[in-house]
Design a protein around this nucleic acid. Structure first.
Lengths: 120, 120
DNA sequence: CTGAATCCTCGGTGATACTG
DNA sequence: CAGTATCACCGAGGATTCAG
């Protein structure tokens, strides 16, 4: 790594964008394919109606998610990843692999640290 | 991608952990090598004394950063990445590359979206 | 120089109700 | 079914001060 400064800034930008509470979850589920609003809401435990709307708006604004509304009654709106959004799933999967492989190490370090802190 | 559910959860965990305002910055600079507290503080524009302390504590707790204190006057404390922390820089660099390559597309999508929203 | 504690502000988030 | 608006809450983060 030579130009750490520039890498850091752009990385920090992306992390700031996708680092909120729900964005990665939404992206992950949309990487499976197109989903309707309520389908997403049902698949993502704990997300509120409002936050799903906001999260999808943000992703749509950044060109990562495409929204398709059908003028039917009742309304039907489908969301899917754009090519740009799909290109992000690769790097995210890399990070996810690291996460799965190293989660035990993280938890072990955490409990060890807390035990040391508790004892002094 | 078959098991999206599990991948999502572990990924969301890591994102939640490193997705705060300063962690990636600190990791990035420590990936260059060992640094003292004030060195980090000066290299990371805008970070407060308090937040640098908290961020480093969190990283140390998770076993990503090692802290070495010298019993001198004045005190001298050095921070560096652990092997676990170094193993994270790979996936992060992948994400950083994506960020640098696609930042123009993101900004373009954003302005286009905002223009559409402004006009109706 | 490094770190801990306190106070305070602000924005993200959730609950709810209403609209088309 | 999908989206918007309003209110209230809570915690992240900044400024400051004190300690070792």
């Amino acid at each position: 790594m030579e130009n750490v400064e520039a890498e850091c800034r752009s990385l920090a930008e992306v992390i700031a964008r996708i680092g909120d509470k729900w964005t990665v979850m939404v992206c992950g589920h949309l990487s499976e394919g197109t989903h309707r609003f309520n389908a997403l809401k049902h698949r993502i435990p704990g997300i509120s109606h409002r936050m799903l709307t906001i999260t999808l708006r943000g992703l749509e604004r950044d060109g990562l998610v495409a929204r398709k509304a059908y003028a039917t009654v009742p309304p039907k709106v489908e969301y899917c990843l754009t090519p740009l959004g799909q290109s992000l799933t690769g790097p995210l999967a890399t990070l996810a692999s690291w996460a799965r492989e190293n989660r035990p190490a993280l938890e072990q370090a955490r409990t060890a640290f807390d035990r040391r802190a508790a004892q002094g």
